[in-house]
Design a protein around this nucleic acid. Structure first.
Lengths: 218, 218
DNA sequence: ACCACAACATACTCACCAGTATGCTATGGG
DNA sequence: CCCATAGCATACTGGTGAGTATGTTGTGGT
């Protein structure tokens, strides 16, 4: 079936991803994407019926690539805590260093607030990432290396922090220093190890003399 | 000087903000904004020279409003830790409940990756927020209510987590429950109180037998 | 009272770009 | 060897929306 170049759909998806990662969805035209893939608009439309389909394809490309990279990052490690740490380091590194990653994920996020199909794809991806982390944490716990009282809650909080670090990195370049990255990884591990809702509610509960929640007005 | 309606620039900025908060920057036209403000495109251009200027005005509107709300939230409180907690609650609440806030900030963030002036405005705003938090934390610490070893680092990490919580909230509605919100606030406080880079480097350093940083290849 | 001008409206231009219509080409099956 | 068709190119349409040109009105200053 391939007449000249093989796997043109994949090539188009990759080109789309690369361009979206530079200028966002609205800053890239079908002509741009087609040109980068070495074809023209007409043939692009013989593979994808709309720009929207191309966006979804670019997202899938990103999700696949990300998970592949994470796996290859830890495939040779066996020590559970080492694996966890390595994944954290990878996340921080890719968040902090790779500006394109930032542009792409931000665009996806912005679009997912408007587009249901994009939202679903991202939600599923995020879920996979979360489960990966939970698995790593629980393995490390089973090995007696760390103590985490509520893995799901704690991992969620840590994932939120990672997401936020990505935001900050766009505005504060100094984060890119190797030392700073290590501090961040250490901080993230600290969230995992020492934070649980129960202990904290207990620890800070002395303050809230009036009931469990502190909001009085509004 | 006002011929018919007073403070039309402000009204336009507010209209712009409201519409941007629903459909993002690209989903809103100058006609839309003008119509909501009760005028037409022509007169809009006699106040703002371009859509870009309107975007900046909408951002300023948001920054101003946000800070005003935070201040009014704690103006009647004197206990330092109570003030800190209240601000955290407000942040989580506005992140989690207010979808528009999410759409707007996400749009701003996406744009700031492309546009220098938008980026600068956001960076300045974020800086103000950070300083506010650092002030709250240090006051609480001076009062002997909490112990935070490295306020700047810790506040940064917690702010990152807040930003990330906003992301998650878009995909997981269950966060909106009052109880979940309290847990998140507790978790954020936990980040402040128990996380410092030094202690954590020390606590987890036993792992890294080879040097201070754990990355071997790459 | 009247003039100057700011605030507003109307009606355009122009560029951009998603999507389409149509035509060309080369490959693989018969 | 030939022809059907997938893969590709070219050239178009149509809608949209930012920005502009120009006309109208009401108000404040004198």
């Amino acid at each position: 079936m391939p007449k000249t170049a093989p796997n043109m759909p994949g090539k188009l998806a990759e080109s789309a991803f690369e361009l979206f990662s530079e200028r966002g969805f609205d800053g890239v035209t079908i002509d741009d994407i087609s040109a980068r893939a070495g074809v023209t608009k007409g043939s692009c439309y013989s593979h994808y019926r709309s720009k929207h389909e191309l966006i979804l394809a670019a997202c899938s490309h990103y999700y696949r690539t990300y998970q592949r990279r994470v796996q290859s990052e830890i495939s040779r490690l066996t020590d559970p805590l080492e694996r966890l740490r390595r994944v954290l380091e990878f996340s921080v590194r890719s968040c902090v260093i790779d500006e394109r990653n930032r542009v792409f994920t931000t665009s996806v996020f912005a679009l997912s607030l408007q587009d249901e199909s994009v939202r679903q794809g991202w939600a599923q991806f995020y879920d996979t990432v979360r489960e990966t982390y939970i698995g790593l944490v629980m393995t490390a716990e089973a090995a007696g290396q760390i103590v985490v009282e509520d893995p799901r809650f704690t991992v969620d909080l840590m994932l939120a922090a990672i997401e936020g670090v990505k935001m900050r990195a766009a505005f504060e370049m100094h984060i890119a220093s190797r030392q700073e990255q290590q501090s961040i990884v250490a901080g993230l591990l600290g969230i995992l190890i020492s934070t649980t809702p129960e202990t904290l509610c207990a620890a800070t509960g002395t303050l809230q003399s009036n009931g469990t929640t502190g909001s009085r007005h509004e």
